[in-house]
Design a protein around this nucleic acid. Structure first.
Lengths: 363, 363
DNA sequence: CTGAAAGCGCTTACAG
DNA sequence: CTGAAAGCGCTTACAG
C-alpha cells in the first residue's frame, strides 16, 4: 500500500524507537506502558529515546488494538445556538470539558434536531467506536436513549436527571430542591397566587419541577398554574402576557430559565406592571444576567459547572471499570434580589435591593 | 491476541459483510466508499447488507489506514470558566460545532494555562494524529503556534486574527471596523475625551484595536487613554475606577468585552456617575446582557457564530486539500442603546432609550 | 470486475 | 527478560 505523501514532519513510531534501542516493538510497548517484561535499564533507555524523539502513541492505532477511543460523546437536541444563549449549557460544557481535558479524553459534541436524532447519533458513535461512553442530558419521560445504551452496552451517565432511570448512574440537577426554595421564598413573602412559566414538558426535569411546584403550593395553601414553553424568549414573553391577562392575575411568576425570566420582566415592564411591587419574578440558574438586569432577579443558583465535571468524571470511571465516585456538588441556593417582594397590599417590610455591582466580584 | 470481552452488542465489520455477500473485503471497501472496482449489482447487494446489519466504519481503523482522524482541535489559554462567562467563546464554539457536526468531524477542545501549554497540546495532538487540523484563536504577537504548525505541516486556520500571519489562512474578527464604529458614534455625539478599558495586551487583536482606536481618536481630534486588563470583571471594575478618578475624567469609556462593560457600569453607578448623562459607555460583542441591563448598553455586534462556522468550514477544506472558501460574514454593526449620549453640557438632543424588551425578539 | 495481500501503528499472548 | 508474530478493521495498489 502506498500512503498519501504527508507534508510536514514525520512522526516517530515504536518501530523507530525499537530500532534505535536495538529491541523489539513488543519490548518498547511494554516499556512505554509501564508493564512488566522489560529490564529496568532497557526501560530507561527506551523511555529516554521516546522522550528525545518526541514520540506519542498514534491514537488510532492504540484505539484499534485496545478497542478504546479515548473520547466521550454528548448529543444535544436543542436549537443550534443553545450553547450561545443558554448559560446552563455553556456552564455544563465548561465543567465537562475541564474534567475530560485533564484526562486527555476528547469530547464528541453534536447538536441535533430531536430525540430520535440523538439516538441515531449515539448508535453511530457506538458502531464507529467513536466514543467510549456518553453523557445523557435533557432526559425525557420514557427516553429511548436509556434502553438503547443498555442494549448496546455503551457506558452512559445521566446528567441533571430527575432520578434513577434503568441501570444508569444519574446525577440529579437539584430541580426539586430549587423549586421548593423558590416557592418557600415567595410564600414567605406573602404570595398565595404563584404561576410558573415552565420549559418543555417533554423533559423529565420539567415534569419533576411541575410535580414539586404543585405539591409545594398545595402544602403552603397557595395556588397557581403552569404554562409550558419551548424555552425560547418569545415563548417566555407570550406565556407571561397570557398569565398577566388572567383574572385573578398572579402576584408572582417563577421561570424555568433566566432567558425566559428576562423576557417576562420585559413584558411586565411593557404592560406597566411594576416589579416587584405588583409582580414578583424568580428564576432558575442565576446566570450573570440575573445580577445586572434591573430590577435584579431573584434566582435559584445551581452549581452547573460542578454537575458537568462530576458527571464527566463518573463516566470516565465507568468506562475504566472503576467504581463510580460519589456525587458531591453544592446544593442549589436561593439568591434573593430585587425582583421579589411582598405582594401589593401586604404590610411586610420591603427588602432593599442589593448594591448595584454584584458583578465585579463574580468572574 | 485475546481481546477484552466487550459487554453489549457486537459490531459488524467489513469481513462480516464480505462473508454474507460472498465477496472479498476489498470489494466491500470499494463498494462502501463509492469507488470503481465493483459491479453495480454487487455494490447494491453490499450496500443493502451494510444497511441491514447497521454497519458503520470503525473510525480508528479508518483513521489508521487513511491517516486521517476526522477531528479538529482548539486549544484555549483562558481561565477554565471562560466558556461559561465569556459569551464570545460560547458563540464561537456554537458556530464551530454546528459546522463540524454537520460533517461528522469531532472537536478536540482543551482549556490550558498559557501559550506554551497551547503549543504543547498542538504538538501532542499532531504526534498522536488526534486531529487533522487546528483552529487558532487569541493570536498573540509573534505567536509561537504559527511557526509550530507550519513546521509540523499541521493544517491550521486563524480565527479572529488581526491579519495575515505566516502562511495561514486567517479570518478577521472585525476588530478594526468595530472600534471605528464605536469611536465614530461617540465622536458624533460630541465626545472628545474617550478612554478605553482593553483586554490583554498580549493578544494581537487587542493591539490592533488599540492602534485603530488611537488613530480614530486622533483623526477626529479627540484624545483618550487605554488601560489594559486580563478581561476579568474585577479588572474591568478597577480600570473604570482608575479612569473616573483621573482629571479630566473621560466623558466616555469603551470596553473590550461586555463582561467588563457591565462591571464598569456597576462602578459608575456606585460612584454616583450617571450613565449616559455624565459618562457614556460602549461595549463589544453585544451579548444578550447588553439589551437587558439598565441603562441598556450601546455595543458593537459581531457575527461571532458566523466567524466560528466559517473558520471551521475553511479548516475542513484545508484538510481535504480543497480550495478554502471565501470568507463571507456579516460586518460588525453598532447597536446604539441607552448607555451612550452627548457629554454633559452639550445641547445635542438626547436619544431615547429603546423599548424595554428587545430581548423577547432575539432567541 | 474481483480476490488475495500488505500495510497503517499499536497491544498482547506465546515461545524461547 | 526478550523476540517474533498475530491481530484490531480498515484502505489500496497489484495480479488475475
Amino acid at each position: 500500500m502506498v500512503r498519501r505523501q504527508e507534508p510536514g514532519r514525520r512522526r516517530p513510531t515504536i518501530a523507530d524507537i525499537a530500532h534505535k534501542a536495538g529491541v523489539s516493538k513488543g519490548s518498547v510497548s511494554y516499556a512505554l506502558n509501564g508493564r512488566p517484561g522489560v529490564s529496568e535499564p532497557t526501560r530507561r533507555r527506551i523511555l529516554a529515546i521516546a522522550e528525545e524523539t518526541g514520540w506519542h502513541p498514534n491514537r488510532a492505532a492504540r484505539a484499534l488494538s485496545a478497542a478504546r477511543s479515548g473520547a466521550c460523546g454528548l448529543a444535544l437536541a436543542r436549537p443550534a445556538r443553545t450553547l450561545a444563549y443558554e448559560p446552563f449549557f455553556a456552564e455544563l460544557l465548561s465543567g465537562i470539558e475541564a474534567e475530560l481535558s485533564a484526562r486527555q479524553v476528547a469530547l464528541m459534541l453534536q447538536i441535533v434536531e430531536d430525540v430520535d436524532a440523538e439516538a441515531v447519533a449515539l448508535r453511530r458513535w457506538w458502531a464507529e467506536r467513536r466514543v467510549d461512553g456518553v453523557l445523557l442530558v435533557d432526559l425525557r419521560v420514557d427516553d429511548p436513549r436509556v434502553p438503547l445504551v443498555e442494549e448496546l452496552g455503551l457506558p452512559a451517565v445521566i446528567v441533571g436527571g430527575p432520578g434513577p432511570t434503568g441501570s444508569l448512574p444519574f446525577f440529579p440537577g437539584g430541580d426539586a430542591i430549587g423549586v421548593c426554595q423558590i416557592v418557600e421564598h415567595l410564600v414567605g413573602l406573602g404570595h398565595r397566587r404563584i404561576d410558573r412559566v415552565a420549559g418543555s414538558p417533554e423533559f423529565a426535569h420539567t415534569q419533576l419541577r411541575t410535580e414539586v411546584f404543585e405539591e409545594a403550593l398545595a402544602g403552603a395553601g397557595a395556588s397557581g398554574s403552569v404554562v409550558t414553553t419551548d424555552y425560547s424568549s418569545p415563548a417566555g414573553a407570550a406565556a407571561t402576557r397570557e398569565l398577566l391577562a388572567r383574572s385573578p392575575a398572579p402576584t408572582a411568576i417563577v421561570y424555568d430559565s433566566d432567558l425566559m425570566a428576562i423576557a417576562g420582566l420585559g413584558v411586565a415592564q411593557e404592560m406597566g406592571t411594576v416589579v416587584p411591587t405588583e409582580l414578583s419574578i424568580a428564576s432558575f440558574d442565576d446566570s450573570l444576567i440575573c445580577g445586572v438586569v434591573r430590577p435584579s432577579l431573584t434566582a435559584c443558583a445551581r452549581d452547573v459547572v460542578g454537575y458537568g465535571a462530576q458527571a464527566a468524571r463518573a463516566l470516565i470511571s465507568l468506562v475504566e471499570n472503576e467504581p463510580v465516585p460519589t456525587y458531591v456538588v453544592e446544593p442549589p441556593k436561593l439568591v434573593p434580589r430585587a425582583s421579589t417582594g411582598p405582594p401589593a397590599g401586604t404590610v411586610a417590610p420591603r427588602r432593599r435591593a442589593r448594591p448595584p455591582s454584584p458583578v465585579g466580584a463574580r468572574a
